[in-house]
Each structure stands twice: as C-alpha cells, then as structure tokens.
Amino acid sequence: MTDELILANATLVLPDETLRGSVKLSGGEITDVSTGTSVPTGALDCEGDYISPGMVELHTDNLERHIQPRPGVDWPHAAAIMAHDAELAGTGITTVFDAMRVGSVSRKESRYGSYARELASEMLELRAADALKISHFLHLRAEVCSDTLVEEISAFGEADRVGLVSLMDHTPGQRQFRDISKLEAYVKGKHGFDEAAFQEHIAHLKTLRDTYGDLHEVEAVKAARRFGAVLASHDDTTADQVVTSAAHGIHLAEFPTTVEAARACHAYNIKVMMGAPNLIRGGSHSGNVAARELAELELLDIVSSDYVPGALLMSAVKLGEIWGDMARGLGTVTHAPAGAVELTDRGRIEPGKRADLIRFKLIDGTPALRGTWARGQRVA
C-alpha cells in the first residue's frame, strides 16, 4: 500500500488531549502528525471534525446475530461474516475480537450446540482471501458450565489468531444471573421454554457446573497460555471471585456486576470493561451495576459494544461528557482496549502506528460517523 492521504484541519483525538491538526497516512501507517488548521494541496479538509484512532472491540455478540438472524434460522456463514465485518466498519470499529462460544450443552432442548471451530475456519479463510475490511481476531468464550469445553477448545491452536479467552460461568443463581427471575425472563424469551422446561434447564446447568466446572476452568486457563492469548474473567460479582481471577493471571474483567467486584479488580490491577448498551440505556438489562456508576467512581477503563455495534462510539462520547474530557472518553475504545490485549501497533494517532482512523462530528451530542480508514484505506 503506497497511497498517501492527509486528513487536515481536524480535531485530533490524542491519548491525553484533543487539538486541531493534520495526520498523514502512507503505506498503511501514520507517517506524520502536525498541528494547525492549514489544508495542503490534495489534502482532505475535515472542517474541524474529530479524527480518532479506529475503535478496538474486545467483546461483541454481533457475529452470532448474523449467523442466526432468527431463532432456528441459520444464515450462510461467509455472507454473515462479511455483513458483520461491513457493519463494524460502518460504525468505526477497525479491530474486532469476534466472540465465539466454546463449550456446548448437549441436551437438544438447550439449543447450545458446537459451532466455533467451523465458523473460525471460515473467518480465517475470508481473511486470507482479503475479503474483510477490518482486522479480526478470535475471542473464545470458554463456557465452564457445559459438557464439551475441553473437546471444543482443544480444536484451536496458535495459528488461529485467538487473542482473548474469557472464563464464562452462567450457572444459575450467581454472577450475571444471581437474580433467577432475570434469567427466567431471558431464557423463556429467547428459547420459548415453558415453566417445566425452564426448571429442567436450571437443574441441568447446575449439575454440569458441579461435574465439570473446576476442570473446565483449569483447562481454559491452560488453553489461553497455549494460544498466547490474554485471559479475561466475566461477570465477577464478589471480591473473592476477583481474587481467584487474579490467581489465574487475569488482567481484564468483562462486565463485573457489582461495585465491590470493580473495586477489587482495580486493587489487583485488573482493567474493568463494561458494556456500551448499559451506559447508553442507563443501566444493566440484568439488573447489575450501572456502567455510569462505575465511571463516576473512576472504576471504568474499557468499553465494549456487547450486542449493539453502533453503541461503541456513542458510549465513548458519553463518557467524554461525564468526565469532561473527550480524549479520555475515546481512550476507552481505542488505546485502552488495544493495550489490554497487547496490541501495541494501533489505538493511538502517532507516527508508526497503523493507519486505522475514523472521522466523526457531533450533532446535538450524538456522533455521526463520516469515514473509516483501515490501514490507510477507506472502508466506510
């Protein structure tokens, strides 16, 4: 890639400040950053719009929504992957860790079958064919409350771009679903269970946790080390759970459910990630701690779009308003997530970094995306 582009007269979002200036892109990298409002011949006049690093998404369920757009409807995977890729580019995400569950529940009525290995292979084939607009890594969600975690995670290796492994434990009555009524509403709404089927479902999951949970947790930690992937916890609720996370070598906590857990995470130097929908909606759909509360308590480090890709940029701007610091707000979706997964080549507007950038303006406080560049090429 040799094309040269100058984005001039922009409000540059740097790690610690925003300032008016220009950024030059060449060969897929940022080659120069300068201050001022001048627009050189041939440059793109950004008219004061924000230019930020492209966003780094660590946990999104969006691909699963594309491969199964309705319950029982399986969409062709290649088409689903490319549609997912294009959607993320169109929201300003330039690096994504695609979440795929490993660990199935074998009972037919549970509807949690194995799919990750096949989907990952198709993703990697499309990447090799240069069919994708943005940078994709794998995020394996290791479900310890399952029958088949060891078998499924063993099918992955170092060549699979597994950058993140999260320890998921959805045993009813703890973590995300301490309130069984919240789980009941979710499961009945998603799977159409009646009361008898729901009670059977709960009993079976608890049996799985008792039978396999400790073994699966150990094997998932070992697999993350084998892949060279970052290990994350999920839905920590108590300080004791955070102590266990720290003992595993975890440095990233996805969606802690209480202030207690978030405080404990920071005490152990574990970065706290919360969901953008939680922040935008003003609270958790599961009744857990609000992301805004953690932000106001200085306990929020990273934001994930979770299940709404378009919420990521909105949430960063929202945090900029809450903290009175737009650079800090955008940092939660750029350099902070990149640093958490040890990607040192992106997430900052600096010479030598990847030319992954977005352009946006604010319309009554709402960000309107006006361009996305990945490795210096316009992708949205």
Results as ranks from 00 to 15, higher is better:
residue 240 D to M: 10
residue 328 R to Y: 08
residue 348 R to H: 08
residue 236 D to W: 05
residue 354 R to V: 00
residue 252 L to I: 03
residue 247 A to D: 15
residue 241 Q to P: 00
residue 353 K to T: 13
residue 270 I to C: 12
residue 311 A to C: 03
residue 232 A to T: 10
residue 341 V to Q: 11
residue 295 A to R: 04
residue 351 P to M: 03
residue 327 A to D: 07
residue 323 W to Y: 09
residue 336 A to Q: 15
residue 261 A to S: 09
residue 311 A to G: 05
residue 330 L to N: 12
residue 288 N to R: 13
residue 247 A to S: 14
residue 294 L to I: 03
residue 258 T to F: 01
residue 226 R to I: 01
residue 345 D to F: 01
residue 239 A to V: 11
residue 283 G to T: 06
residue 331 G to S: 08
residue 254 E to Y: 01
residue 253 A to F: 00
residue 264 A to T: 05
residue 250 I to M: 00
residue 328 R to V: 02
residue 289 V to P: 04
residue 277 P to T: 12
residue 250 I to Y: 04
residue 306 D to P: 00
residue 306 D to G: 06
residue 228 G to P: 00
residue 343 L to G: 02
residue 308 V to T: 07
residue 233 S to W: 02
residue 304 S to Q: 12
residue 232 A to V: 02
residue 232 A to E: 13
residue 243 V to T: 14
residue 260 E to H: 03
residue 288 N to C: 04
residue 274 M to D: 07
residue 284 S to E: 12
residue 319 L to K: 06
residue 315 S to C: 03
residue 273 M to A: 15
residue 235 D to N: 09
residue 308 V to K: 04
residue 300 L to A: 11
residue 334 T to I: 00
residue 321 E to Q: 13
residue 304 S to A: 15
residue 353 K to H: 15
residue 262 A to M: 13
residue 324 G to N: 09
residue 329 G to Q: 11
residue 303 V to N: 04
residue 287 G to F: 10
residue 270 I to T: 09
residue 255 F to G: 03
residue 233 S to H: 02
residue 225 R to K: 15
residue 250 I to E: 03
residue 258 T to S: 13
residue 258 T to E: 01
residue 229 A to E: 05
